[in-house]
Design a protein around this nucleic acid. Structure first.
Lengths: 208, 208
DNA sequence: CCATAATCTGAACACTATTCAGATACCGAC
DNA sequence: GTCGGTATCTGAATAGTGTTCAGATTATGG
């Protein structure tokens, strides 16, 4: 109904019954509905209807509703990493200034994503998609970007060797936590920039 | 069925029809079920059945299922704060050592709670209970304990005046974030102690 | 062109949240 | 004490849910 035509269209040149790319169409439709109603309150039947397919058709691509949601989670992790990648590529340079800007931008993208799409953020980190079953891999790319940023900060002398050891852990945790706390209304939105200030200062701990 | 008798018992001395304290009994039963099945997958009917009451009885105390879940959230925040309070009272002393131990224990309680009861933790921070509607108050007590700990750390010279400004924000965010990331399988359990080490080092940033 | 496989439908089942008229038990006033 | 009013709870009904499965439809390879 309110879905872009692309998502409900069959494969070009053929019409009806066999949908062209149902698996991804279902995920895209699910994203639209989760964004609107939250990861709980997602109806499998509503997803099927959006795509223009019967409810049972879903079961050819996902064993159950939870697996569909997990599929959505996978897609969201990929999308977020892609946004971070693009943001980083916009800031070049080997200076301390550039390294700082890249580090902060990485965190900002994360938070802005969470703040703009609370329901999608909740789906990613609210236990809806289980990653531990098949090992950690969805977030590997994002982690590597963070590592690269921290290495640059170390090289340019912004952070101390002692704190480098905790760089990924403290950065990811703090950004993840602040995003959650702000999204869930425990902290006001404005504090996120303060957090980035605090993190930058903290990472220099131990410098002579 | 598997619920302690206390929860299904009517008010002592009277029997049947009028339940003594249905509101809290419903919340207690909901906690048991959420812990087992997760905040999604909670059935209002199952809660009612556990307590030994008809499904419609629930609507005399909560306008809908989401409100019941919100009620559970409130109780969980109170319980967590209580556990932290007890943990703090076990560590007395004005030394830097004692202050450090209190600070770390505050974070540990938070994380252990999350790690031991992932589904309850998800309910608290997964968008199921909306706190922003009526303002932030559920976490106020916990926040004050953290503030007290940080003040002690400042007095004993463990943390720098510059970092004191970011103390609550960076501590709460990092502990919250690490708990989420570990519970959801993005980080191994062992890193939490590393995070506490990193936080302690970080809070000293800027000291001469 | 046909048989086989992939894809999707329709109907059914058990379960869910929610509503509401009415039954039940408590409580205060007489 | 008992009577009336009120808070509390029930039972049934409605509309919607996830899931299953036999069978209809379409695509594909020989």
């Amino acid at each position: 109904m309110s879905l872009p035509d692309v998502l409900r269209s069959k494969r070009p040149g053929r019409d009806s019954y066999h949908h062209g790319d149902l698996q991804v169409a279902l995920i895209e439709a699910a994203i639209v509905l989760v964004r609107k109603n939250g990861p709980d309150h997602l109806s499998l039947r509503a997803v099927a209807e959006q795509v223009g397919v019967s409810p049972s058709a879903v079961y050819h691509y996902f064993p159950d509703k939870d697996s569909l949601i997990s599929g959505v989670g996978d897609k969201l992790f990929i999308d977020l990493a892609q946004m971070q990648k693009e943001a980083l590529s916009d800031i070049s340079g080997k200076s301390a200034r550039a390294a700082k800007r890249r580090y902060r931008e990485l965190g900002r993208i994360y938070f802005r994503w969470a703040n703009k799409e609370p329901n999608l953020f909740r789906l990613m980190f609210g236990g809806f998609c289980r990653v531990d079953a098949r090992g950690t891999h969805v977030d590997n790319e994002a982690f590597l970007m963070l590592t690269k940023c921290l290495d640059d900060l170390l090289e340019t002398g912004v952070i101390s060797p002692q704190m480098r050891r905790y760089g990924e852990l403290i950065s990811w945790s703090a950004v993840q936590g602040a995003s959650t706390l702000i999204v869930e209304g425990h902290l006001p939105e404005e504090v996120f920039e303060d957090l980035l200030d605090g993190l930058e200062l903290a990472l220099g701990a131990g410098k002579k």
